[in-house]
């Protein structure tokens, strides 16, 4: 019975993929055998077909694919480039939306004692988990950070009073504060995207502006290993759901009940 349903979704997923109207993210989201039929690299971004929408955006990270690319920083460079993230060159003032953290630290609550050789002392990309039950949103006194209906935890820098309560509440250290004026520390300012001002909090937004333009998040697009799979978790036929059906995924600190939406496939 369950196999039947699985196969049904598989077929349904592949069938919808063939339909012209299905957004480009599905292409990425499908398994690798399907991806090969469409060549998409960072040089030739997919042609936008209207805004990308979902009931609940989520991301899966294929950790082994990511680790195959030794010392790769393409996702974070792309993200920090398009979002005008400054580089202060010191950990105190540091601002980061996505970064590489050692597996042991990213999942330190698991207290991994003996990891497989290929995971030990390796780094994985971490960023905002876009929790279904986000503590940052709960504590924000002005609703400057809020959860959109499609699951994106947004940040309204216009409203932020800079109290940093969200940073105290985030169990993942995903948020950064502008301790000083960031502008002089942005290597190459992209005028199409705003910078931030001192005194406000910022973080990953799942590239809400790119989704609105029909583009995938910058990190997903930049990942040549296609280790980042972005899709709709409520669409049973989506690539991310298919992947989660096939492989074991772990999430960071699931015991806190925040329901993080970033899945690490190990």
């Amino acid at each position: 019975m369950s196999i039947d349903r699985r196969q049904f979704f598989k077929i349904a997923g592949l069938a919808t993929l063939g339909l012209a109207g299905k957004p480009a993210y599905e292409v990425f989201a499908q398994g690798e055998d399907v991806v090969d039929s469409v060549t998409v690299t960072s040089e030739t971004p997919p042609v936008p077909t209207g805004p990308l929408t979902a009931h609940r955006w989520a991301m899966a990270i294929d950790v082994r694919k990511c680790l195959d690319q030794k010392d790769c920083k393409k996702c974070l460079l792309a993200c920090h480039q398009v979002h005008n993230v400054p580089d202060f060159g010191n950990p105190k003032d540091e601002i980061k939306w996505i970064w590489k953290e050692s597996f042991e630290h990213a999942f330190h609550e698991q207290d991994f004692e003996h990891l497989p050789d290929d995971l030990e002392h390796q780094v994985v990309p971490i960023f905002c988990n876009h929790c279904d039950n986000p503590p940052c949103v709960q504590v924000c006194p002005t609703q400057a950070t809020f959860r959109r209906e499609d699951g994106i935890v947004m940040m309204d820098q216009h409203r932020c009073i800079g109290c940093r309560y969200c940073m105290a509440a985030c169990p993942y250290g995903s948020r950064s504060f502008n301790w000083r004026d960031p502008r002089p520390f942005i290597k190459q300012v992209d005028p199409a995207y705003p910078t931030r001002t001192r005194g406000v909090v910022e973080k990953c937004t799942f590239c809400d502006d790119r989704l609105a333009r029909g583009l995938l998040p910058a990190c997903v697009e930049a990942c040549e290993a296609r280790a980042m799979i972005f899709g709709d978790l409520e669409d049973a036929g989506s690539g991310i759901r298919e992947l989660l059906r096939q492989r074991l995924a772990i999430r960071r600190k699931p015991g806190l009940g925040t329901k993080p939406e970033i899945y690490y496939i190990v």
Binding site: Q157, P191, P194, T195, R196, T197
Partner: peptide
């Protein structure tokens, strides 16, 4: 405050 963050054309 707009121009603290948004970037005016060259």
């Amino acid at each position: 405050d707009c121009w603290d963050c948004h970037i005016a054309p060259e």
